[in-house]
Every structure is written in C-alpha cells, then in structure tokens.
C-alpha cells in the first residue's frame, strides 16, 4: 500500500478528504478547503536541533544585531494567539492556537532602514516578507501548538507564524530574521511562488 501511495505521488493524508465547511466560508479564502487534521509539508529532511544549541537572531540592517539563546528566548514575554492558517496547497485550518513571542517584542527599539526581511531556518529554507507584514501585531515566533511543545515535523522547536499570508511564509525551524533594504526572493519565491502571498487575493504564483 505504501509503495502504491508513493507511485501515485500526491495521494497522502494531507491532500485527501476535502471537507467543505460552508458555515465558515467567510473565513476561508478563495480556492481553499478546511481540514481538521494538520498536514505536514516539508521541502527537506527534518532538522534535529537541541535547544541548548538553538539561538534566534535579528541581523542585517541593524546597528547592533540581536541574539537570544533558548533560555533567554523563553524568558521573553509571551502571547497566545488563535489564528486561521492557509496553505498554498489549498488546505486551511481554523482556530489554530500558538504560544510564542511577538515579533514586535523582538524588534522593540530597533531602528532600521530595512523595508524587507528574509526569515531563515535550519536546513537552508528562506522566505521573504515585507517588514510591515511582520510588525504591528501580525507575526510571532512560536514554540507551542495547541498547548504542547511544537513537534519537529511542524517546525519545532520554534517556527515563524505570519498567518495573514500563505503558510509557506511561516517558516519551520526558524533561526532568525534578516533585515534588508531590498527584497530578496526566498526558497519558493525564487521558483514560481508569489513574492507576497496574500491568500485572500489568491497570490499563489508569479504573476498572480
């Protein structure tokens, strides 16, 4: 059975079972369907990072780059947020609960000429997001999902969360934010996927 699934490619738990949730259609962007499970998407092997080796950095267009160890990061003020998330592969998941640190907290007092950012991760993944889209109570660096430590397959120990954009922007295994004057396309944005990725405008691909 497993071999059959492999040969059939896109048949997997994550892509099966379209459940239409008409009651919540005003919360579901065009072309999306609601799932109740949590599909796992990955562009490579899952990094295994020990938290005593983990750090989070803000670098680039900043006079004094900032860096937190795991212990320092855990001591920062946290927020628990409940958000709908929208994957470009067309599933949406409603009312997901996350705990972590607001990017506003991490950026407090930072003066920068940057207008863009690259979010970068263990394993080499990157994604580009305008600075205005990760500040102003719009993005978090999270380490709990649904009250539990974030599992490695969902990006643990720590992932990015910018729920108003397609979920590929919410980078798993996140390690830092690079502040940039110019926009540098990330892993998917350099190969067909939209630079901005607004699910409500269906900005999936180049030219959308």
């Amino acid at each position: 059975m497993r071999d059959t699934q492999r040969l059939m490619g896109f048949v997997s738990r994550g892509f099966r079972g379209k459940r239409r949730d008409t009651a919540s259609s005003s919360r579901v962007p065009p072309g999306q369907y609601v799932v109740t499970d949590f599909p796992v998407l990955s562009a490579g092997p899952t990094p295994r990072v020990e938290v005593d080796q983990w750090t989070f950095s803000i670098e680039g267009e900043i006079d004094e780059p900032r860096r937190w160890t795991w212990k320092e990061f855990q001591a920062l003020p946290t927020e628990t947020v409940t958000k709908d998330i929208h994957c470009v592969t067309k599933w949406s998941k409603l009312d997901t609960s996350w705990k972590g640190v607001s990017v506003d907290t991490l950026m407090e007092g930072v003066e920068t000429a940057a207008e863009f950012t690259t979010i970068y991760s263990d394993g080499g993944y990157t994604t580009n997001v305008p600075l205005d889209d990760i500040t102003g109570n719009k993005a978090w660096v999270v380490y709990e999902f649904d009250g539990q430590p974030l599992q490695p397959e969902h990006g643990g120990p720590v992932r990015f969360l910018v729920p108003h954009l397609y979920f590929w922007k919410s980078a798993k295994w996140v390690r830092g934010i690079r502040l940039e004057k110019d926009e540098h396309p990330g892993f998917w944005e350099s190969n067909g996927y939209n630079m901005y990725g607004d699910p409500w405008r269906e900005q999936r691909y180049w030219g959308d």
Partner: peptide, 20 residues
C-alpha cells in the same frame, strides 16, 4: 520531497537541493 508547495529533489550524498 513531494509533500510541499513544489517538488524538491536533493542530493543523496550531501542533501543539498538539486532541483525544484
């Protein structure tokens, strides 16, 4: 890796991306 926004092909020796 096909469970992703696209197909990612990696080198079996060094895991770097060969194709997207």
């Amino acid at each position: 890796y096909i469970h992703a926004p696209g197909t990612v092909v990696r080198c079996p020796d060094c895991e770097q991306v060969l194709m997207r």
